[in-house]
Design a protein around this nucleic acid. Structure first.
Lengths: 138, 138
DNA sequence: GTATGTGCAAAGACTTTGCTTTGGA
DNA sequence: TCCAAAGCAAAGTCTTTGCACATAC
């Protein structure tokens, strides 16, 4: 049984066929799909799934902290499954030529950020860091 | 004559009354107003200004690189005038309790970011960094 | 059996655009 | 004068929601 499914059950969510499909899609998505993309992928498995259900499910999962919602500067939201061992925040480099999203992580960066916030008298609740760039041609 | 106005003229934009008002509003906004907010402020000076004009003007200014568009996690865009002496990128700390946006800047952070991107084989075009947090109560 | 969840379509929020009129250079 | 710009309203895009029906527990 998948981790996501397990946690949803724990949270008291009813495990409908649609939800199972959406969870499966999310777990198998290595990228950061939009709601539309999740819906398309889900429809390949069960064509009857509606976009409203995908929105509602992603909303619930985000509330439970099981997925993370991103903007990436675009006009629509994009999602990724939140990994447990991700207490060290990761961040995103968005390739402006291909749209590909590359994840990266840096302890040094995290420490730095906390120092800055502290200096301003703030406690960090969340932070996002996005780099937009393109591959260096050799 | 204001800097923004000068640059718009240089870019060949016609200086209509509406534009003058919008530029004035932007220059006098120390915060990071939304399109709606800019429009409201503009309407206090000239009630006939329409939201469409504000959108179009902000779009033009963003294209010219005279203003910067932000998301701040919300549902609508927010803008700020891009300062000339801002070759050192600044970033934003959003107070989740008050909505206030605090700007900060760190050379060390910038260097770090470039090192990371370089390590991934990427050239940075832009980057945004947002911290969400709240004041530490003493 | 009953509260939850789903699908559909309508409504919402924010933004863009087509068209006619206005006005700056 | 003439093309860019403004105003208005309609259309677009992404997201949320009301309602009737279906379903997990």
């Amino acid at each position: 049984m998948s981790k996501l499914l397990l946690k949803c059950a724990e949270a008291g969510l009813k495990m409908t066929d649609q939800r199972k499909v959406i969870l499966k899609v999310l777990e198998e998505s290595g990228d950061h799909p939009s709601v539309d993309t999740v819906c398309d992928r889900a429809k390949r498995i069960d064509a009857s799934i509606s976009i409203a259900t995908v929105y509602r499910t992603l909303g619930l999962l985000a509330e439970l902290g099981l997925v993370v919602k991103h903007d990436f500067g675009g006009t629509y939201a994009r999602f990724e499954v939140k990994e447990e061992h991700d207490h060290e925040h990761h961040h995103h480099l968005i390739d402006t030529e291909t749209g590909q999203v590359i994840e990266f992580q840096s302890d040094e960066l995290e420490q730095h950020i906390h120092k800055i916030a502290e200096g301003l008298g703030y406690k960090i609740i969340d932070h996002t860091f996005e780099i937009f760039g393109h591959k260096i041609k050799k």
